[in-house]
Amino acid sequence: MKNIEDKKNKLVIIDYGAGNIQSIRFAFKRLGVEAVLTDCENEIRQADKVIFPGVGEASSAMKKLKYSGLAHVIPTLRQPVLGICLGMQLLCNSTEEGNTRGLGVFDVNVIRFSNHLKTPQIGWNQISNLKTHLFQHISENEFIYMVHSYYAPLCKETTATSDYGIPYSAALQKDNFYGVQFHPEKSSLRGGQILKNFLAL
C-alpha cells in the first residue's frame, strides 16, 4: 500500500454526495492506492490526480456542485482530472437531463438516447477508436460496463467511441481533463488497467 502522503500518488475523489463512491475507492485500493474523499478546495488543488465521480440525476448533482462552490473549482484544476459517467457528462457544455448547464470543459452537449432504444443502456458494451495514454494496453473493441440514458455525441474531443443505436463518445479528453462514460471501477481487469493508466498520466 502506497503512502497517501506520498505527493506523487496523492489521489482525491471529489465528494459532493454523488452516489456510490465506495466501488471507486475499492478499485484504487486494489491497485494499491488509497484515495482521499474530500470536498475541500485546497485538498483537491494539491492532489496529483482528481476523480470526479457521479451517479444519479444531472440537475440535482449540478445544484450540489454550485452550492458547495466546487462548480468553480473543477474547471480551473491543472492536474489530470477523470470524470466518470455523470462526472464526464457534467464536464460538458450542457445536458438534456433536467436541462442542465454543465461545467463547459468539453465542447459538446449531452443528449438522451432515442426513444426506440431501451434506456438506461445497462450492460457490457465495447470501446473503439481508442486514443490517449488512458487506453494504453487496452485492445480495440474491449468490453466495458455502461449504465446511462444520456450520451455525448461524437465530437473533436472524443477519445473512444461506443455504439448503442448510433456511435457516441465513450471517452473525451481536453488538456488535463479526461472523461469516461463507462464505469472502469466495474469493468473487470481492463477497467482496472484504465484506472492504472490514469494514475500513470
Binding site: Q22, F26, K29, V147, H183, G191
Partner: peptide
C-alpha cells in the same frame, strides 16, 4: 456488501 464491494470488479 462492503466485503463484496471490496473484492469484486463487476456490478
Amino acid at each position: 456488501v462492503l466485503k463484496v464491494a471490496e473484492a469484486i470488479n463487476i456490478p
